[in-house]
Structures are given as C-alpha cells and as structure tokens.
C-alpha cells in the first residue's frame, strides 16, 4: 500500500521536471524531424525521378492478360455472323 506523501521535494528528488522537459523536447524533436522528412519527401522523389527515370511506380503483383479463348471467339464470331446478311441468305 502506497503511503501518500504530498511533497514538492518528491518531484525534485525524482528529477521529474528535468525528465519531463527533456522528454517533451525529444518527442518534439523526433516528430518534427519526421514531419520535415515528410515535407521534403515529394521533392526528394522528384529529384530522383529526374535523375533516374523509372518506368512506373512500384505496384502490386501483376495479373497476366487473359489468353483469348477459342470457344469464346467462336461464339462471338457466330453472333456477329448471325446478325449479318450472311445468316439471312443462308436461311
């Protein structure tokens, strides 16, 4: 069980103020650097793209184009043929 001992001296003994100021400064420094990096990133990328032009942006796994299916092609051909005069003349 904790003994409640309200005392400013506890803060000074535990270096509470130093830790808090240093901690906030470090958090701000780290996040400011990250923020600065994010701000500069598009510019850095533009320079790199100019120096080393690439084909495309990185992307996910590509899907191979589907090979035309003979059966489907035959069906399309038949439908088209049936809509033309050739079909009527055959009747």
């Amino acid at each position: 069980m904790i003994k409640i001992n309200l005392n400013i001296q506890n803060i000074l003994d535990g270096q509470g103020i130093e830790i808090s100021i240093a901690g906030m400064l470090i958090v701000f420094a780290a996040l400011s650097l990250i923020s600065l990096f994010i701000y500069c990133l598009p510019m850095i990328l533009r320079i790199f793209t100019r120096m080393l032009p690439s084909e495309e942006e990185p992307h996910g796994p590509t899907v191979a184009p589907l090979a035309p299916d003979d059966v489907v092609l035959a069906a399309i051909g038949f439908t088209l043929h049936s809509q033309t005069d050739g079909f009527i003349s055959a009747e």
Partner: peptide
C-alpha cells in the same frame, strides 16, 4: 499534411505532467 504531426507530439504533454503529479503523490520515479 506533415505539420499536423506536431499535434501528436503536443498531446504527449499529458504523459510528462502526470509523471510530475505521480511523483508529487509519493510514487517512485
């Protein structure tokens, strides 16, 4: 919107002020 990152830093003040409050109440560091 990189400037909004700083808001994430500012909110951490709660951590450090509470640390001071806990020390004041007699908890160890």
């Amino acid at each position: 919107n990189p400037k909004l990152v700083l808001l994430g830093a500012a909110a951490q003040i709660g951590i450090f002020l509470t640390l001071i409050g806990s020390l004041y109440l007699g908890f160890d560091p």
